[in-house]
Simulated scan of single mutants.
Amino acid sequence: MKQKISLVALAFIVVLLSACSAKDSFEKVAESDYQWTGIAVSGEGRIFVNYPTWQLASPFKVAEIVNGKEIAYPSEEINNLFVCVQSVVIDKLNRLWVLDPANPQFKGVVEGGPKLYQIDIQTNDIVKIYNFPETVYTPTSYLNDVRIDTKDEIAYMTDSEDGGIIVLDLKSGSSWRALNSGCPAVLANLDGIDFKSTGKSKGITNSDGIELSEDNQTLYFSALTANILYQIPTSVLRDTMLVPEERCKEVSVLNNKNVPTDGMVLYNNSLYMADLPNESLWAFDLKTKEGRSFDFGTTIRWADSFAVGADGYIYFTTSQINYPEKERVQYGIYKFKPQ
Rank of each mutant, 00 (worst) to 15 (best):
N79V: 04
I71L: 09
G68S: 04
G45D: 03
L96M: 06
V98A: 08
V85E: 11
S75D: 04
N103R: 11
I65S: 01
S75E: 03
N103Q: 07
P104I: 06
L99N: 10
V85Q: 12
G43A: 11
G43M: 11
N79F: 04
E64N: 02
Y51C: 11
R46D: 15
V85I: 11
E64T: 05
I65Q: 05
R46L: 14
Q35C: 02
F82I: 00
L56I: 14
S32A: 13
I71T: 13
E111G: 07
F48Q: 14
P104W: 07
E44V: 02
A72Q: 06
V88W: 08
F60I: 04
R46M: 13
Q55G: 06
F60G: 06
P101R: 01
E64Q: 15
V41Q: 03
I71V: 15
I78A: 00
Q35P: 00
V83P: 01
G113A: 09
V83E: 08
Q86K: 09
V49Y: 11
E76S: 11
P114V: 07
E77K: 13
F60E: 01
V83K: 08
L93T: 12
E64R: 04
V109C: 07
V98G: 07
Y51R: 02
V49T: 14
E64I: 09
N103L: 04
S58H: 09
L81D: 06
K115N: 05
D100N: 07
K69N: 11
N94Y: 05
V49M: 11
V98C: 05
L93Y: 01
V62A: 01
Y51T: 09
G43V: 12
G38T: 09
R95E: 15
V89E: 14
F82M: 02
K61T: 10
P104M: 05
D33S: 12
D33F: 05
E76G: 01
E64M: 09
K115E: 09
A102M: 09
F82Y: 14
E70S: 13
K92Y: 02
Y117F: 15
P114L: 12
T37M: 06
E31L: 08
A63N: 07
K69M: 11
E64G: 05
A72P: 08
T53I: 02
W97H: 08
R46T: 10
I47Y: 13
Q55E: 12
T53K: 14
I39P: 06
N80G: 05
I90R: 10
L56K: 13
P101S: 06
W36T: 01
S32W: 14
A57R: 12
V89K: 13
I65L: 13
A40G: 15
G108V: 02
G38P: 08
L99C: 07
A57M: 10
V83R: 05
S58N: 04
D33C: 01
A57E: 15
N94V: 06
G112P: 08
A102S: 15
F106V: 00
L96K: 01
V88T: 14
N80R: 13
R46Y: 06
E64S: 10
P74M: 00
G45V: 03
G68H: 00
P59I: 00
N50T: 13
P101N: 05
T37R: 11
E111Q: 12
N103F: 01
A30N: 06
L56F: 09
L99A: 10
D91L: 09
L99H: 10
K61E: 10
V98W: 10
N50E: 15
G38I: 08
K115R: 15
V98S: 03
L81F: 02
W54N: 04
E44D: 14
V62R: 03
W36D: 00
